Simulated scan of single mutants.
Amino acid sequence: MRLGMQLGYWPSSPPAGAADAVRAADAAGLDSVWTAEAYGSDALTPLAWWGAATQHVRLGTAIAQMYARTPAATAMAALTLDHLSGGRFVLGLGASGPQVVEGWYGQPYRRPLARTREYVQIVRDILRREAPVTADGDFFRLPLPAPTSPLGPDAARADRDAEPTGLGKALRSTVRPLRADLPIHLAAEGPRNVALAGEIADGWLPAFYAPRLDASLREPLEDGLARRSGALRPHEEFEVCASVPVVVRSSVDEAADAVRPHLALYVGGMGARGANFHLEAVARLGYREVCEEIQSLYLAGRVDEAAAAVPLELVQDVALVGTLDDVAARLRDWEETAVTTMLLQGDPSTWRALLSPGSPVHAAVRG
Rank of each mutant, 00 (worst) to 15 (best):
S32L: 10
V123R: 09
A264L: 03
R273Q: 14
R302A: 15
P177K: 13
G40D: 10
S149Q: 14
A264P: 11
R302K: 14
E336F: 04
V259S: 02
A197M: 08
R332D: 14
G17P: 06
Q345E: 05
V57L: 09
Q316D: 03
V365K: 02
A48V: 12
R260A: 01
R332K: 13
S41P: 09
R115V: 00
G198K: 10
V100S: 04
T116L: 00
R332E: 15
A338T: 02
A170I: 15
S96Y: 00
G94T: 07
R228C: 02
A43D: 13
D333G: 01
A364R: 12
Q55K: 10
L320R: 02
A308H: 11
T35N: 04
A364D: 11
P153A: 15
S216G: 03
E163R: 13
Y287C: 05
R352P: 08
D154F: 10
R330V: 12
V101Q: 00
F139G: 06
A309K: 14
A338V: 12
R227T: 14
A68Y: 08
D214E: 04
A135I: 06
A201K: 02
S96T: 00
A264S: 12
Y39A: 15
S32A: 14
L343I: 13
S216Y: 01
L232C: 08
A64N: 04
D159R: 11
A210E: 10
G92A: 09
L7D: 04
D304V: 13
A329M: 08
P132Y: 10
P147M: 10
P191K: 00
T80M: 08
P261L: 09
V240D: 01
L355F: 06
G94H: 01
M76D: 07
P261Q: 10
Q55A: 14
V194G: 01
A201E: 01
T341G: 10
I126P: 07
M76L: 13
E254P: 06
L297M: 09
G51W: 01
L151T: 10
L221F: 07
A281G: 00
L279S: 03
T350R: 04
R212I: 03
E163P: 06
D159A: 15
L285K: 01
T323D: 09
P143I: 02
K169G: 03
A306F: 03
L93K: 11
E199H: 05
Q99C: 00
S296R: 15
A272D: 13
A75N: 11
T148M: 11
L355W: 07
P112E: 00
L127N: 14
G40I: 07
T70L: 09
P261T: 05
L59C: 12
I126F: 14
E237N: 12
Y266G: 02
Y287Q: 08
G92E: 08
P71E: 04
E163N: 11
L263W: 02
C241H: 09
R332Y: 06
S356K: 14
V22A: 09
W351H: 08
A363T: 15
P348H: 06
M270D: 03
G8P: 02
T134A: 12
